[in-house]
Structures are given as C-alpha cells and as structure tokens.
Design a protein around this nucleic acid. Structure first.
Lengths: 212, 212
DNA sequence: CGTCTATTGAACGCGTTGGTTCATTTTGAC
DNA sequence: GTCAAAATGAACCAACGCGTTCAATAGACG
C-alpha cells in the first residue's frame, strides 16, 4: 500500500512539532527534525518546501489535535445531569488537564513566541482553539440559561469569564506552564473557578447556588 | 560629566529591548541593536559581555518598569472611597491599559517565547510582575474583607481570580495582544470583570452588591 | 599639553544552518 | 521480474551573525 508515503509526511510533521517544541523555532535544525522523524533531510524538503512551511503545517496539525480534544470535553455539558456544579467542575478539571498538557503548552509558547515572524499563525491557531472553544462553551451556557439553570446573561461573556477563571489561575500557578502542577491542585483551581462562576451566574435560588 | 558612560549602558539596554521586541531574540542582530542605540558594536560587547547577557539585562530592566507602573495603580485601592465598584473599575481599567501597552505585550511575548532557551528568565520576569501584583492586590482585598467591604474569603484566591477576569477576556479580545482594542471596549471588559467579581465577592447586602 | 580611558569603524574568523545536488538504493505497483 | 517513483546519504554552497581584533579618534583630567 502507498500509505508509506503519507505516513512519512505525518511522521515529519509530528517530529517537527516535537523538535520545535523542544528547541524553539530558531534553534531547531532541519537535520534534527529529519533525524527525529527517522528520515533523510532531502525527504523533508521534498514533502514540505522549506522550514517556514514545515513550521506552519506542523503548528496547524498540532492545533487541530488540541482543539478536537477540548471540544470533546465541552460536549459533555450537553447533558449536565442533576448536579450542575459537579458537571462544570468535571469539565473544568478535564480542560485544565488538557491545558497543562505539554502539547498545549508548547503550542501556546511557539505561537506566542513566533507571532512576530509568522503573523498569520496566530489566526490559524487561535481560531482553531480558543475561539472555537469559547464559542462551544457559550452555546452550552445559552442552553443552560434558557433552561433556567443559569441566570439570564450574555453567554459569550459568561463563557469568556468562565475560561478566564480557569486558565488564569492555572497560568499563575504553573508559571505559564513551566512548572508541573499536581492533579489535586488542578482540581482545587477548577473547584474555585466554578465556585466563583456559580456565585456570579447561578440562577437565583437554584440548587447549585452556593448559599443553600 | 561621566554620565556619558552610564547613559550609554542604559541606552543600549533600552535599544536592545526595542529591537528584541520588534524582531524576536533570534532574529535580532547585535549590530542592529548597536545602531538603534547610536553606538558601535564593540561598545555593546564591552558593556554587556554577550548577546545572552544583553537579553537578560534588557528584559529585567523592562520588567522593572512594567512592575512599577502596575504597583502604582494597585496602590489606588488603598483608599477606595465610598463606591467600591467604581474604585475597582477604575483600577481594572488602568491595569488593562498597561497590559495593552506595547512594552507589556512584548515583555510577555519574549518571556514566553524564549523560556526554553532562558529558563531562569521566567522567574525573573514573573517574579517582578505577576507575583508582586497579585500579592499587592491580595493585600488590598484582605483589608477590604476585614473592613466588611468584601465577603470573607481567601484574599490570594480572590486576587488571582480578579486578575484572571481582567486579563483573560482582554487576551481573547486582543488576540494575545496583537490586535488593538479600543479604549471603550477595554472599559467594557473592566466593567464586566468587576461586575462578575463583585457578584461573587461582594459583602452580603452591601451597597456595591449588584442586586440592590 | 600629555595621558589615559572609552569609543569607534572596519574588517576578519568561524561556526552554524538553510537549502541543493547527485549518484545510489529502496520501495511499491503491475 | 521490471520499472518508475520515492528515499537516502553524503557532500557542498552561500549566507548570516556572533564575537574579536586593531589601529585610529575623541574627550576628560591633571
């Protein structure tokens, strides 16, 4: 089967992201990427024309993976069950775990760091991750609001703040993703974020309201 | 006067940060920095031994400036006046403006992007900015809580979440600081963040509670 | 005025790395 | 088994940029 050829391309992209994540764009050598992929240098250049192209494609592929992972998690809010707080905490915890993931962190690091040299990269990545996720969360919140589980509010703003309440403290605790943060602490951050969120957005008198 | 010598060093550091911010670490040439500072290349090497050292010192200096600016703003919470909501919104807005500032953004970009090559840089910068600021805010919140203006809470967590509610949405809106965001929108973000914060942290039955 | 120090400009060595060439070998299709 | 496309390895070129050297200059101080 001719899968061998396609596999090579995928292997190169995966290896490229690995090496870029480890070394940064400038310090990563094409030869090094070729080695990591178990492939010769000319093979790399035959699949991806030059280093810049290689970088763009590797980043896009990685962004797609991360986005898919996150969207799958948010989808769990489609049927939140009886205990909204528990459901939110569960989703929050899972999303934070993904954000802690080395792949996510490297993606953000590289995007942020190379945005000067690759201006359009920001749109590519941000579009596929943050925006889509915020949108998905907003969708869920809109339904929850309509169902009387959350107070009437702007779902986009609620989603924005919900995500901020999670990722902000995580970044602070993990030193922008360079320190490891224990699962227990991650769970505490999720619980704290959800608590504050519910204090601000729970439907008045609802069961998940913190003062009951 | 022998100020000329010290001035040169400062000029070099300032120019270095400017060029690093514009080009990124790898793409910035020492010659270019020397030109920007109006100085010869050997002069740069005589003051700062090599490029890495130059980078470290330039970043530290820039971090100090940003930190000082932010701390001055937080200090305004020392005497919040009658209207706590207004005071918080004012501080929030001013801090967001600083975060939008090109210097702050470049600082974060460079730190984040070069953290792989300069691991200790993260501590240097983060220590001087985020940590100090969160600490200062926590101090203010502790006093406010004791004075009955905020509900009883963990001030560190409250500060963490307060800052997250501001910077998170700002990052989302400004595409991590690459799009300009109008002053009106910044103010809206500040108001929204403070609103959510007060819903979660206002003292029960206080005047600044949103349901009065 | 003489001296010492900081600065300058220009050039250089040198290592690194992106990108290419080519002859050879492997691979997969038929 | 045959053939064409793809992969390999090794070498090569050229550009770039760090860091240095050095002779010449400017300026402060006594």
């Amino acid at each position: 089967m001719s899968r061998g050829r396609i596999d090579k391309r995928e292997a190169i992209l995966a290896a490229a992201f690995t090496v870029f994540a480890r070394q940064g764009y400038a310090r990563a050598g094409v030869q090094e990427i070729a080695d990591e992929a178990g492939v010769a240098k000319p093979t790399v250049y035959s699949h991806l024309h030059d280093k810049e192209n290689l970088f763009r494609h590797a980043m896009a592929a990685a962004a797609d993976e991360v986005a898919a992972e996150n969207l799958a998690i948010v989808d769990r809010l489609r049927d939140p069950g009886d205990d909204l707080r528990a459901a939110l905490e569960d989703v929050a915890f899972r999303m934070l775990r993904v954000c802690c993931d080395e792949r996510s962190r490297a993606l953000r690091r590289l995007t942020f760091g190379q945005v000067g040299q690759f201006p359009e990269l920001l749109d590519t990545v941000q579009e596929r991750t943050s925006c889509q996720i915020a949108e998905a969360v907003a969708d869920r919140f809109a339904r929850l609001s309509l169902a009387g589980r959350l107070r009437s509010c702007d779902p986009a703003r609620a989603a924005e703040q919900f995500l901020a309440l999670l990722t902000g403290p995580l970044d602070a605790r993990s030193r922008l993703g360079t320190r490891k943060v224990a699962a227990a602490e991650t769970r505490a951050i999720a619980a704290a974020g959800v608590d504050t969120f519910l204090r601000a957005y729970a439907a008045p008198g609802a069961a998940e309201s913190p003062d009951t």
